[in-house]
């Protein structure tokens, strides 16, 4: 990686951190593919106070690696089962991930109401949102029936392959 790329990466992470603060999110995970075997995976999380972590570049073929989660509050060891609140939505068993790189639209078209909202119950195959890539409007279907408990992305967000979009439980 060149010096230039490094600077760009730093700027990118800073922009993510800002997005996190502005939208009052607790965590944001992004993978950027620059080309063959050249990708950057970043998870920025905010746990009083805001913290930023940057893993080193990862091969593009790997799924988003777990970036070092910065100062996470120590979970109570009382419950032996899987942590009830994983910081990374991609880890959530109900996560619906993006099958492609693109731009997210939560409405069928501007001004229309959203396909779904938090609290909605969906059937398998119901459209959750659109990911646009190369002027192709890809309707992303619910992979299973359930209740939308979280919408991870915002309208107009750029998403990478495998990025968590929504949680259905």
């Amino acid at each position: 990686m060149t010096e230039n790329t490094h600077d760009a990466d730093v700027a990118f992470v800073k922009a993510l951190a800002e997005l996190l603060r502005e939208n009052d999110l607790t965590e944001l995970s992004v993978t950027r593919d620059y080309g063959e075997n050249n990708a950057l995976s970043v998870t920025v999380s905010r746990h009083q106070p805001a913290a930023v972590s940057v893993p080193s570049p990862a091969p593009a073929a790997l799924p988003a690696p777990q970036a070092g989660h910065a100062p996470a509050p120590a979970p109570s060891p009382a419950n032996g089962s899987a942590p009830a609140t994983s910081a990374d939505p991609a880890d959530h068993p109900g996560a619906v991930t993006s099958p492609m790189v693109g731009t997210v639209y939560l409405q069928p078209e501007p001004g229309a109401s959203a396909f779904v909202k938090v609290g909605d119950t969906v059937d398998e195959g119901d459209t959750l949102l659109i990911v646009e890539a190369m002027k192709t409007m890809n309707q992303i279907p619910a992979p299973r029936a359930g209740k939308i408990t979280r919408i991870v992305v915002a309208d107009g967000d750029a998403v990478e392959y495998g990025a968590p979009l929504m949680i259905i439980e």
Binding site: D7, A8, Y34, T103, M134
Partner: peptide, 15 residues
């Protein structure tokens, strides 16, 4: 994806 070379590095654009 459209690849643009910017002063901050290469950017890939999907939409």
């Amino acid at each position: 994806q459209l690849i643009l070379r910017t002063p901050q590095g290469q950017r890939a654009i999907a939409a």
